Each structure stands twice: as structure tokens, then as C-alpha cells.
Deep mutational scan, measured.
Amino acid sequence: MAAAAAAGAGPEMVRGQVFDVGPRYTNLSYIGEGAYGMVCSAYDNVNKVRVAIKKISPFEHQTYCQRTLREIKILLRFRHENIIGINDIIRAPTIEQMKDVYIVQDLMETDLYKLLKTQHLSNDHICYFLYQILRGLKYIHSANVLHRDLKPSNLLLNTTCDLKICDFGLARVADPDHDHTGFLTEYVATRWYRAPEIMLNSKGYTKSIDIWSVGCILAEMLSNRPIFPGKHYLDQLNHILGILGSPSQEDLNCIINLKARNYLLSLPHKNKVPWNRLFPNADSKALDLLDKMLTFNPHKRIEVEQALAHPYLEQYYDPSDEPIAEAPFKFDMELDDLPKEKLKELIFEETARFQPGYRS
């Protein structure tokens, strides 16, 4: 834990890192770190609560700039109880001085990944967590956004079992017609939660990839272990087919990539493993919904509104309290091709509203 900075004593240090967030945020305490930044909790002297502050230093890398800009653009436009918001952003007053960006968010005690390492969940908890994931996802999908990296560590939890989806750095506007060349190379989302079509096709992607990830998360809540822990690309596919069985001819016809289709045709026939054999203690309604989410063919996979209306979630289902976005989200430009200098300018502009004396 960093010592509390005395008023006016300059930035606090946390594990050798400068955290320049005073005077409003003090009493910093280390939480963890990701690929390009550290997260601390801090005391907000204005709202009198502890908050989470993520320090991001992305400006050396085009990919990190892209992810940072995506996350900020999306989260500043989203407003939903099951999606983490941005409360404040701290950065230098000029673009030349801006080396880091500090993002202030609600402090959540833990995440689903940490929880599943230590606790076996009751059916009631599984049901409530799944409902909140789908409630947040309904809003995301209504904005025409794909999260693309749903996994237990991106689901934040607090002691009252509130759940918030975080990390929109890989999110995209849904565009089933656009052929994202190089899709697989830039697709760094965790393999275990990846839909089979991501490994088999490169053309376009749809909201059904997020539903697949939610199915993987439900299976993990039922058993405290990942359902498809593939060691590499082909191993991942083999794990999936080992449980779902061989795809039907109709399902194979959806695979545009001939090499991928021929690979699947070359494999020995596998039978589907019954879900109640894998999860003998699970609620039968939970397994019915799991089956509809972990469907090989993305066109037959359940959609988020149908999933919310499934009998497993009937005690929570309330369409009048499951809000959607006001308007579909649009990125003005494809960020993939922009140089990091341009992305830095866009991050600077996007964060201006939090600067003292800002006038829109």
C-alpha cells in the first residue's frame, strides 16, 4: 500500500510507478496490472468513496492506442447498470505532455475469474450472474457493438453480487458484411471463450460470437473449470467437437473457408456428449439454455433477447427493466489503419471533457 500523499506533496508512487492523480484522489492501494497499465484503488475526496484507477501508458504502440481509444469512446457513450462506466479521466493539459491516461471507475471487490478459483456457486448465484451478463449484453448488442472478449476476468463483482462487464478494448461495431482481413492475426481474445466460426472463417462476425462466450462462462460457473481449455488453435476446435459432436452437413455448409471445411470433413465422426453427463448436478433449465448458447452453427445460436426470456431466468426476466441503447454506435473511421500519432490526438480530444474549465 502506498503511503497517503500529504496535501501538495506531488504524485504518489505505487510499486515504483508514478500515479499522478492528486489532489482529488489519494490513499492509493495496488490492485493489479494488465498488459499496459496498473490498477489501484484510491480515495475520492470529492465523492467520499474509494474508486478504481487504471493507469494506461499506450502511446508507444499502435495496438494499445487503438484499444484505449475504443474503450474510452464506447464506455463514455454507454450507460447501463451492468456495464462499468467511466467516472473521470485524468491526463496532462497538453498533448505533448500526455504520456499516461488515468481512467477512474467504480471500485468492484472482485471478478468472476477470482471468485470461481475459490468458491463453488449455488444455482441461485449462477442464475443471477447469468441474468446480469445477458442484461448488459442486450444493451451492448442493441448499440450494434460486439464485445468480443467476454470471459470471467472481464466480469466485475461486488459483495452485493452486482455484476458489471468491463474491458471493451477489443470491441467492434457489428459488421457481418465487412471482410476484416487479418482478423485472426489481430484477434487476441482469450482462445477458450472463442466461437468456432472465428477459427473457421475470417469473413465478418456477428453478435452470436458473444453468446458463445457467455455459454462458455455459464459452463464454467457450473463446474469451476473452463469447458474448452484448448492449448492452441486446432486443439481448441477438437475440444469443442469432442463435446458438441461432429457438425451436420448443414452446419458445414455455413463454413465459407474450404480449407477449414475440408479439415472438419477429414475428422472421424464424434457423438455429442449429453450435458447432464458433463454437469450431473446442474439445473435442467440451465443445461437447456447452455445447449442453445453453445450451438456450433452461429445462425442457430440463441440471441440475447431470447436467452433473457428463457425459463431458467424467469424469476428475473423483465423486458421493461432491460434497457437498450438510445442509438446504434458508430465509429467515424476504422481505427485499425491509423498511425499511433493520430490515435493519440483522438484520445486527447475524447478525454477533453474531463479537463478543468472544459467548454463543449
Results as ranks from 00 to 15, higher is better:
3 A>F: 04
4 A>P: 00
9 A>F: 01
11 P>Q: 15
13 M>A: 13
15 R>L: 14
16 G>T: 02
20 D>K: 05
22 G>A: 10
26 T>C: 13
29 S>M: 08
33 E>W: 00
36 Y>M: 06
41 S>I: 02
41 S>A: 08
44 D>S: 06
52 A>H: 00
52 A>R: 09
59 F>W: 08
60 E>G: 07
61 H>T: 02
63 T>L: 12
65 C>Q: 03
67 R>G: 05
69 L>E: 05
70 R>P: 00
70 R>E: 11
77 R>Y: 03
80 H>R: 02
80 H>W: 00
81 E>G: 12
84 I>D: 02
85 G>W: 00
85 G>D: 13
85 G>S: 13
87 N>G: 04
87 N>L: 03
88 D>S: 05
88 D>P: 08
89 I>H: 01
92 A>R: 00
92 A>T: 12
95 I>C: 04
96 E>P: 03
100 D>N: 14
104 V>H: 04
110 T>Y: 10
112 L>H: 06
113 Y>C: 10
114 K>I: 15
119 Q>E: 08
120 H>Q: 14
120 H>M: 11
121 L>E: 10
121 L>C: 10
122 S>V: 04
124 D>M: 08
124 D>T: 05
127 C>G: 08
127 C>W: 05
129 F>D: 05
130 L>N: 08
131 Y>I: 02
133 I>G: 03
136 G>W: 15
138 K>M: 10
139 Y>S: 11
140 I>D: 03
142 S>K: 04
148 R>A: 11
149 D>I: 03
149 D>A: 15
149 D>E: 14
151 K>S: 01
151 K>V: 10
151 K>Q: 14
152 P>E: 13
159 T>R: 13
164 K>H: 09
166 C>D: 03
167 D>N: 15
168 F>A: 02
171 A>E: 07
173 V>W: 05
175 D>H: 04
175 D>W: 06
179 D>H: 09
181 T>W: 11
182 G>S: 11
182 G>Y: 12
182 G>E: 13
182 G>I: 13
184 L>H: 10
187 Y>I: 00
188 V>Q: 12
190 T>H: 03
191 R>H: 07
192 W>H: 12
193 Y>R: 13
196 P>L: 13
197 E>G: 09
199 M>C: 03
202 S>A: 12
204 G>P: 11
206 T>S: 15
206 T>W: 12
206 T>K: 13
206 T>Y: 10
207 K>E: 09
209 I>Q: 13
211 I>E: 13
212 W>N: 09
216 C>Y: 13
220 E>T: 07
221 M>C: 05
221 M>K: 14
221 M>G: 04
223 S>M: 12
226 P>I: 03
228 F>R: 04
230 G>C: 15
230 G>M: 00
231 K>Y: 02
231 K>I: 01
235 D>G: 03
236 Q>L: 15
237 L>P: 10
238 N>C: 11
243 I>M: 03
244 L>P: 07
246 S>P: 00
247 P>E: 03
247 P>R: 07
250 E>A: 02
252 L>I: 04
256 I>L: 12
257 N>F: 09
260 A>D: 12
262 N>P: 01
263 Y>Q: 07
263 Y>K: 09
263 Y>R: 10
265 L>V: 02
274 P>S: 12
274 P>C: 07
274 P>I: 02
274 P>N: 05
275 W>E: 04
280 P>E: 12
281 N>S: 08
282 A>F: 00
284 S>Y: 03
286 A>L: 04
291 D>M: 10
292 K>D: 08
296 F>C: 09
296 F>A: 05
302 I>P: 09
305 E>N: 03
305 E>F: 04
308 L>H: 02
309 A>Q: 05
313 L>E: 06
315 Q>Y: 07
315 Q>E: 03
315 Q>T: 07
316 Y>W: 01
317 Y>I: 10
323 P>S: 10
324 I>L: 13
325 A>K: 02
328 P>W: 03
331 F>E: 05
332 D>H: 08
334 E>I: 00
335 L>K: 09
336 D>R: 09
337 D>K: 04
337 D>R: 04
337 D>C: 01
338 L>H: 03
340 K>I: 03
344 K>S: 09
345 E>Q: 06
347 I>C: 05
350 E>Q: 05
351 T>Y: 00
352 A>E: 13
358 Y>L: 13
